[in-house]
Write a protein that binds this DNA or RNA. Structure first.
Length: 501
RNA sequence: GCGGGCGUAGCUCAGCUGGUAGAGCACCACCUUGCCAAGGUGGAUGUCGAGGGUUCGAAUCCCUUCGCCCGCUCCA
């Protein structure tokens, strides 16, 4: 465990040292749950997003793109259920300092022959009925009461009135009086549109990008020349006022999502087929950007834990140093969202199917992932420390496609003008095509190590054979540190083939 | 939100029975260097997280606050 903690610490420290991730507004002491991406970070992020957009939108005939606004008509969030459902009423026990979700804390009055002996409380579980009964019998025995214990009717804490809530004992201490009234936490950030700050101007920063897609469904069907099955893809920022942001950029309050709503015909057969298909597509994509098989996993949400609108949900997980967690959720959402928006907007969102001559609300498969989580997974996957001639080396083994800098160009030594000039020439040529870097400071070995730490896949060195011999340059491989000589034309083809797989 | 630990140079950290700051690495310049963190010379760098208090004097003691890590709690 200790080594795993220090691994994430090393990655956080490297992220800052090399300019991948900074704490937001750090000079003012930072702000919990917000992050800034530095020169290398912004490139890596962009490459991840570009790879996704390229593979999921441009190279597919059945997916189109969208960029919807962050602030939308607040009715969108009424329809989606976020205003009511994105709230978790919480109860604190002042004595034991434990916190419970009010809807998971159940209580019942203990009645013996119509006489109250107080209340029992239990935390929601499969055995809670039996647990409550046991506790109630204990109370009865202590009170030395004869008579028959009436059947307990367990009610969740948030449905009790304040007087009743006061009598509920804390599950931790067994005594009443230490529980607070339920307090609401809505995870949506509120803001106001326009100069007036009254109730009518209240609006929200979107907690997910998906609703922007659903809200635009009709626009795209009407204009996009799309036919079922088809997807609408979007990359964009979303905001959640998380109670406890944790684990570096894994759970932050401002994050970026890459989501597809893939619309399909209704029917059990249909969604099962497409759901499975998308799990395969998405897993392959992660491997394609360099996440290794041994880090990736799948987690099928059990039926009883699904959100009320979902038919199924499978997570693609990644083994982070702090545990295995969700990278992407692939949900079968039925037609819940379109149904809701049709109801709240009063506009028909039905799709007319040419083949069957039928009108219906399409169902949807939603592959949804976080850019920042993917970023962290790529970083964790790439991070390694190896040894070269007995010296420790930190190296980020990014897949060339996502690597922030593709190549470093070096004159072997800087005090020979011919080498320097030739290296700068090549640098400006490569610069037109890729993000590359030029470095002439220090010994060549030091410069190699510098680019290793930044995850640059290719080190290109101009030596005396380049300027006095056949003109060939040397290309060093970051992972093996082996070098091959090739001509300049070969270099372009070589890099191209490695980067654009 | 609660409990515990912590915040000193870009990074890792030392200094903390109060006397206004150091090391290693990194960085910049020049010299040197014919392939994997070589060497030399010189240089820049911190109102010691922030605010307040005690004191002649605070990085060091006290309070508040912000942030980070861990555990609870939460997590479309």
């Amino acid at each position: 465990m200790k080594s795993e903690n220090s691994l994430i610490e090393e990655i956080v420290s490297l992220s800052k040292r090399k300019g991948f991730v900074f704490q937001s507004s750090e000079i003012y002491g930072g702000l919990n749950g917000f992050f800034d991406y530095g020169p290398l970070g912004v490139e890596l992020r962009k490459n991840i997003k570009d790879a996704w957009w390229e593979d999921m939108v441009r190279r597919r005939d059945d997916v189109v793109g969208l960029d919807s606004s962050i602030i939308m008509n607040p009715k969108v969030w009424e329809a989606s259920g976020h205003i009511d459902g994105f709230t978790d009423p919480m109860v604190d026990c002042k004595e034991s300092k434990m916190r419970y979700r009010a809807d998971q804390l159940f209580a019942a009055e203990i009645l013996v022959d119509e006489e109250s002996l107080g209340w029992v409380s239990v935390i929601e579980s499969e055995t809670m009925e039996a647990d409550a009964l046991k506790k109630a019998e204990m109370v009865k025995r202590k009170a030395a009461k004869q008579g028959e214990l009436q059947k307990l009717s367990l009610t969740s804490y948030d449905e009790l009135n304040p007087d009743q809530q006061e009598q509920v004992p804390s599950p931790a201490t067994g005594k009443p009086g230490s529980l607070t009234p339920p307090r609401e936490f809505n995870m949506m950030f509120e803001t106001h549109v326009g100069a007036l700050k009254d109730g009518s101007s209240k609006s929200f920063l979107r907690p997910e990008t998906a609703q922007g897609i659903f809200a635009n469904f009709k626009n795209i069907v009407d204009t996009g020349r799309v036919k079922l099955p088809f997807g609408i893809a979007q990359i964009g920022k979303a905001f959640r006022n998380e109670i406890t942001p944790r684990n570096f950029i894994f759970r932050s309050r401002e994050f970026e999502q890459m989501e597809i709503e893939y619309f399909i015909p209704p029917g059990e057969e249909e969604w099962k087929k497409f759901h499975q298909e998308w799990i395969g597509v998405r897993k392959a994509w992660f491997k394609g950007i360099g996440l290794t098989d041994d880090h990736l996993g799948e987690e099928v949400h059990p039926q009883e834990k699904l959100a009320h609108y979902a038919q199924a949900c499978t997570d693609i997980t990644f083994k982070f140093p702090f545990g295995e967690h969700e990278l992407e959720g692939i949900a079968a959402r039925g037609n819940f969202d379109l149904t809701q928006h049709q109801k709240y907007s009063g506009k028909s969102l039905e799709y007319f199917d040419e083949g069957s001559k039928q009108k219906f609300l399409p169902h949807v498969i939603e592959p949804s992932l976080g850019v920042d989580r993917t970023f962290l997974a790529v970083l964790c996957s790439a991070y390694s420390v190896d040894e070269i001639d007995g010296e420790k080396r930190t190296v980020l083994r990014f897949h060339p496609r996502v690597a922030p800098i593709k190549a470093g160009i070096f004159p072997l030594v800087k005090n020979k003008p011919a080498l320097v000039e030739r290296a700068k020439q090549l640098y400006s040529k490569l610069q037109r095509k890729w993000n590359v870097t030029y470095d002439q400071g220090g010994a060549i070995g030091r410069r190699y190590r510098r680019i290793d730490e930044a995850g640059v896949p290719f080190g290109i060195t101009i030596d005396f054979d380049t300027v006095e011999g056949d003109g060939s340059i040397t290309v060093r491989d970051r992972d093996t540190t082996e070098q091959v000589r090739m001509s300049e034309e070969e270099l372009f083809a070589y890099m191209d083939s490695k980067i654009s797989t």
